[in-house]
């Protein structure tokens, strides 16, 4: 079992994740943007398009404008998630000493480890609370209940368990935590197709569950609503693009001359006008 989860499944996970995403993106790319359905007022430059898509993708602009309560939950959740993911990479990568590597700040490796722990714990808990908030929102607000499918709630519960287990490992590090060095060596060995080291990690039940849930998530990811990560950009690319109006100005029209000639005025009135 440990052999399967720790040494075989990771390769299957990465393969299915990559191929799955390519499959979905290919599916989207196969259909074309037939008509111009960009939303007006028009964006005039590609810079404006980048700012618009960027502010929607990274700041959740529309949620902020139209539903502040949803924005708070969704933005904080994604922001915490981004930090947690980033934290996993640098935290394990530099064994918690990443902040000591920033020149000029004079942070000692010990302080860096403490900072790393504090940030990880904070974002981990924030992520959990935000997920909980979004789940409660789904279960209580009528309009959201009306659009929710069972899978929407299941995903939130799944993430709550996944994040919850991670949080327990952080909060009770002495009893349930893992040693960074071991994890790094284990991942590096896996990635370089070397004989696996650090399998004793999997004796920790929390780590085993956390690791397994992550792998299942990655396998299902390309076939699920989580693809909205990429859908965001694909959809925005259709509705937010540069459009320029044709130049105004009517052919052979000289308003001043027409008015001087009194066009439209009955003949007697025209004379009076002149």
């Amino acid at each position: 079992m440990k052999l399967l989860i720790g040494q075989i499944l990771p390769y299957i996970t990465v393969t299915l994740f990559t191929l799955g995403i390519l499959y979905r993106l290919g599916r989207w790319a196969g259909a074309r943007i037939i008509h111009n359905i960009t939303l007006s007022p028009w964006l005039q430059t590609n810079g404006q398009v980048a700012v618009r898509i960027g502010s929607e993708a990274f700041l959740f602009r529309n949620l902020f404008r139209f539903d502040l309560a949803l924005w708070a939950g969704a933005f904080l959740m994604h922001f915490a998630l981004l930090n947690v993911l980033g934290g996993h990479i640098v935290g394990f990568g530099f064994l918690g000493e990443q902040f000591a590597l920033i020149p000029g700040l004079g942070i000692s490796p010990e302080l860096s480890k403490e900072m790393s722990n504090l940030l990880g714990t904070t974002f981990g808990i924030l992520l959990f609370l935000c997920l909980l908030y979004l789940l409660i929102r789904r279960l209580t607000l009528t309009k959201v209940k009306q659009v929710t499918k069972p899978s929407d709630n299941l995903w939130l519960i799944y993430l709550l368990v996944l994040v919850g287990v991670g949080d327990i490992m952080r909060l009770f590090e002495q009893s349930f935590g893992v040693e960074y060095q071991l994890v790094r060596d284990y991942i590096v060995a896996l990635a370089l197709f070397k004989p696996v080291v650090g399998m004793e990690l999997l004796n920790n039940g929390f780590f085993l569950v956390h690791f397994l849930l992550v792998q299942i998530l990655l396998i299902v990811f390309p076939f699920s609503k989580l693809m909205h990560l990429f859908g965001m950009f694909a959809e925005r690319w259709i509705v937010n693009r540069v459009y320029k109006d044709p130049a105004p100005g009517l052919p052979n029209v000289d308003v001043a001359a027409a008015r001087a000639a009194g066009i439209g005025l009955p003949s007697d009135a025209a004379e009076e006008g002149v």
Binding site: R27, N62, D67, V144, Q146, I238
Partner: peptide, 24 residues
């Protein structure tokens, strides 16, 4: 028709059911 219109495919495949459209 789904194989032709990306706007349609994206509407089918990227909604997260956040519910923001309801009151709007």
């Amino acid at each position: 028709i789904r194989k032709k219109f990306r706007s349609f495919v994206m509407a089918m495949e990227s909604c997260t059911k956040c519910g923001q459209c309801a009151e709007n």
